Simulated scan of single mutants.
Amino acid sequence: MSNSLNATDDRLPAYARLRDALASRIANGEWTPDQPIPSEARLAKEYALSVGTVRKAVDGLVGEGLLERRQGSGTYVKAPAFDATLFRFFQWREVDGNQVSIPSSNLILRSASTAPAEAAEALGTTDVIKIVRLRSLSDLPVLFEEIYIPAAQFAGFAELPEDALGPLLYPLYFEHFGVLVKRATDDLSFGMASETVALQLRLQPGDPLAVIRRTAFDIKGNPVEWRIARGSAAQFRYRSEIA
């Protein structure tokens, strides 16, 4: 049986309706980054549309960062990895002087918890899983993170083996729970290190910190993660290009 576009807005052109239908299938975890999505010819047959219309819909999803074309292999769901972008705010370097890529991650805490007020407001729930991590570069701690995710969407997260948790969480959210992070909002501020944070980052209590509060959203626009990350203000940088 052919798939239908009946659930989409019939005021939109066919390619836009197909784009929304395919995005919904991605959001529902029907396809993963490990296997290509059906070919454009197959999708055209499923939806009774021309290959050109399908290509335009797929091109739109590639442009939005939901799909990626791999030459000679096909088109795949693009695994999210932009949680590494937190580090663009700091001037950390590797020991050889090169720009750091992704610092290592040391898991300090992972457990069911009640969300603090900021996280509860951002996520719309107090029933969360709390993750505390210390990110390090060449054994030097550089970022202290507290992360909160809705327990209802991430059932079983607390039981995942520790070696399944790499330095980047967004690909793990998608691969294990079908939660695709589409975008995130970062709020920047400054503060002073508490005794707990100072101890983790090898600073003195009261030392200045750069503080990043991030809310991440899934493909449907629902908040799926709130985190607060703290690093030494001495390493902070901000650059804005205005044309």
Rank of each mutant, 00 (worst) to 15 (best):
S24M: 11
R70S: 05
T75Y: 02
D96P: 05
I108Y: 01
R25V: 06
S136W: 00
L169C: 02
A16V: 13
Q99W: 10
L140N: 03
T75N: 06
R19W: 00
A81E: 13
V142W: 02
A151G: 02
Q71H: 08
I212R: 11
R69W: 00
A23S: 15
L201H: 03
D34M: 10
L180N: 07
P36E: 11
N6F: 08
S240V: 15
E145P: 00
T196H: 02
R239Q: 14
L160F: 10
R110I: 03
V51H: 08
R88W: 03
I37M: 15
R70A: 08
V181I: 11
E121R: 15
R183E: 11
L43Q: 04
R93T: 01
L199F: 02
R230F: 02
L18E: 06
T114C: 04
K130H: 15
A21F: 00
L201T: 06
D127M: 09
N222H: 12
A158D: 11
R88H: 09
E46C: 11
E118M: 14
P150C: 10
R42A: 12
T53S: 11
Q153I: 07
D9E: 13
G63E: 14
G52T: 10
I108F: 00
A48M: 01
I147L: 14
L172A: 06
E30W: 05
D9H: 09
K182N: 14
K45Q: 13
A7F: 06
S50F: 01
P103D: 10
R230G: 00
L86H: 06
D218C: 14
N3L: 15
R11H: 03
Q91K: 15
L123P: 12
M1Q: 05
P150I: 09
Q71Y: 06
P116G: 09
G178V: 10
T8N: 06
I212Q: 09
F154K: 11
A57E: 02
R133T: 10
R70V: 12
R239L: 14
D139T: 04
E241H: 12
R110H: 03
R227I: 09
L165E: 02
W92D: 00
S24C: 03
I147Q: 12
E30N: 05
I147G: 01
F190N: 07
R214Q: 11
N106R: 10
R135V: 02
Y76S: 07
S24W: 05
R183I: 01
K78W: 01
G206M: 04
K45T: 13
V224L: 11
A233G: 05
R202Y: 00
F217W: 15
F157V: 01
R25S: 08
A23Y: 00
K78D: 00
G156Y: 03
A115K: 10
A119H: 08
L107N: 07
A229K: 01
T85Y: 07
A216N: 07
E225A: 08
E64V: 08
R183Y: 02
E64T: 13
V58E: 06
D218K: 12
T75C: 08
V181H: 01
E225C: 10
R135F: 01
R239I: 14
D34N: 14
E40A: 15
W31V: 11
A27P: 04
V54I: 09
P161Q: 06
S232H: 03
A233F: 08
S232L: 02
